[in-house]
Design a protein around this nucleic acid. Structure first.
Lengths: 160, 160
DNA sequence: TATTGTTATACTCTATAACTATA
DNA sequence: TATAGTTATAGAGTATAACAATA
């Protein structure tokens, strides 16, 4: 909330004087606002490391899945293949990952993190965990679990 | 999840074979994915009405707060003023809202919804509520409340 | 001086069509 | 013919600086 005139209205804090009685029912509204807060904060956190949220997510998954292919990575991160290319170009040009031809399928690239990429990933993950702990400090640990579970439910409703 | 090879891994469903053990701890990762699902779905839902998510949110808030000023609206929706201008241009050019000079402060505009704008808003809200109910059908109503509460906590951690 | 709305601009993320080289 | 990666491009959201009119 950009305004300093913020107060609590039921479970929802709104800017002073604004009647958001209808918006309060909408999950999408709360999701967007909460994600915006996390996003802008994480963006600033990663910036000094030379990472964006997209390159950070990709790097983390490559570190944990050495040899993963671009299309698998795009699938796992829910990013279109054409957009994946530029993200990986960024990581490769910084020397954090390598693209290697798969001998058994010369169309594909196997992705691996370089030692520098692994070090950077470790550093970024540590920062991210501190960052998230701050946002979740107001919640009981039981409720954090429920939150993640609920988010997964929503995510997996797509195909339904 | 774009892949059809989706299975459950603990509380988290991932694409076949991908090890996301580190990502699973990150709230931001789940928030992004869940919000992306809601966003892309809601975008398609509103498109036939001539609304985008941003114009829809603004219209809803104007209907509920007749006479609200642009800067107040931008504040409430957490949108920068320059971006608010184009959103309101869209709504105004479609005849759904009106900008009227405030007599007591001739710098400001008071925003009101036209009858057509009110009718459209009602229609869009009904669609949105159906849409969200689908995503939340897997959750106990008690957990929906906790989800919204947790999202608000996160949103309001920004200034902390 | 400060604020409201505005213009211009730029960057990121997202999405689609079409190409190439391999299978 | 289908798939992996790529190129080009376009749309939408977001962010900052600077301006005119008004307070």
């Amino acid at each position: 909330m950009a305004s300093s005139r913020t107060h609590s209205l039921g479970t929802c804090a709104v800017s002073g004087g604004v009647n958001d009685s209808s918006l309060r029912q909408f999950l999408g509204y709360h999701m967007k606002r909460a994600y915006n807060v996390l996003r802008s904060d994480l963006t600033k956190l990663l910036e000094p490391l030379g990472l964006r949220i997209t390159t950070y997510s990709a790097l983390t998954l490559i570190v944990d899945n050495p040899g993963i292919r671009q299309s698998e990575l795009a699938d796992a991160l829910d990013i279109e293949r054409p957009n994946m290319v530029l993200i990986l170009d960024d990581l490769e040009q910084n020397g954090w990952i390598a693209r290697e031809r798969v001998p058994t399928d010369r169309r594909a690239y196997a992705l691996t993190a370089t030692p520098a990429g692994k070090r950077l990933c470790k550093k970024a993950v540590a920062l991210d965990q501190q960052h998230e702990a701050r946002f979740l400090s107001g919640l009981k640990s039981e409720d954090v679990g429920k939150l993640v579970h609920a988010l997964n439910d929503i995510e997996n409703s797509r195909s339904a």
